[in-house]
């Protein structure tokens, strides 16, 4: 007799891998052939996967159409099977999949549209910004400013794309009238995807803003980060840029290193 593990592996394989030789052994269906019941599970499993992707990627679905989206979703499952009991996480690699999906190769911007939608999904229910996050700044002496370190807050993401994906996203929201002037080849964007209250906002960043945010989010201290920005744009208004990121809580101050818990000795 098969162990529970063997039974479940065989069942999962038959559901997910299109096993043409049929069903796992030992299934019963009240006197009927078990194929009908097994088919219900199979269609429900794939239906759930598609529904989960559809919920996160409505713009991608709108761009490619329902039938192509379902086809892509079924192909995605086979390359990146679900690894989590929470279906809300299932689509985490959809953009990466689309990038290598031959059937979508004619839509070069599609993976970036998906990347933006995943970022929007992630920030939608991410931890709220801490209203007390700015307090540590008041206790830091000016002389220590160059050594300050920050992190990008959980409710924010940075997205770079060679396509104007923010405009693409906006034009594909329900009820929005298509802008005939829109040109997908109009040039790339750097975006700060950030939740303000409950609304997710897409903010285009200039080159200096992008460099500052990227550098600080990557762990650089403020001093070197500013130097890097000034090399790109010597007249960059760094103080007001920084103030803007702190005021919207996109950046959060890390405590000075001497106050952080060190490795135990």
């Amino acid at each position: 007799m098969a162990s529970l593990h063997e039974l479940q592996m065989a069942f999962a394989e038959a559901v997910l891998d299109d096993a043409p030789e049929g069903l796992p052994e030992g299934l019963l269906a009240g006197g009927r052939p078990p194929g009908e019941g097994f088919g219900l599970y199979r269609s429900s499993v794939f239906g759930n996967y598609r529904k989960a992707l559809r919920a996160v990627y409505p713009v991608v679905e709108r761009l490619v159409g329902e039938r192509f989206f379902a086809y892509a979703a079924d192909a995605y499952v086979r390359v990146h099977p679900s690894r989590c009991g929470d279906l809300n996480r299932f689509g985490s690699r959809f953009a990466e999949f689309l990038r290598g999906f031959p059937a979508a190769s004619g839509l070069a911007y599609l993976p970036d549209a998906a990347r933006l939608e995943w970022a929007i999904e992630a920030v939608f229910s991410a931890q709220d910004p801490d209203p007390a996050a700015l307090l540590p700044l008041a206790r830091i002496a000016e002389v220590d400013y160059p050594g300050l370190k920050f992190r990008l807050a959980a409710h924010c993401r940075l997205i770079d794309s060679p396509w104007p994906v923010d405009r693409l996203w906006q034009l594909n929201q329900p009820g929005v009238v298509w802008d005939e002037e829109f040109d997908i080849a109009a040039g790339g964007v750097s975006l700060l995807v950030c939740r303000s209250g409950f609304e997710v906002e897409l903010r285009r960043l200039g080159a200096a803003e992008r460099a500052l945010l990227d550098s600080l989010a990557g762990g650089s201290a403020l001093g070197p980060a500013c130097e890097g920005v000034l090399e790109i744009e010597p007249s960059a208004p760094i103080a007001s840029m920084l103030h803007g990121f702190l005021a919207t809580a996109a950046l959060q101050v890390l405590p000075p290193e001497r106050d952080r818990p060190g490795p135990s000795r």
């Binding site: 162990s3 529970l4 039974l7 479940q8 599970y41 499993v45 759930n48 099977p81 690894r83």
Partner: peptide, 22 residues
């Protein structure tokens, strides 16, 4: 029910065999 086999999740409420092992 079960929904995970090895590392793969079927994200569906699947029936168990009612055995001592289960």
């Amino acid at each position: 029910s079960w929904s995970m086999a090895g590392q793969r999740h079927l994200n569906e409420l699947l029936p168990l065999p009612y055995t001592d092992e289960a």
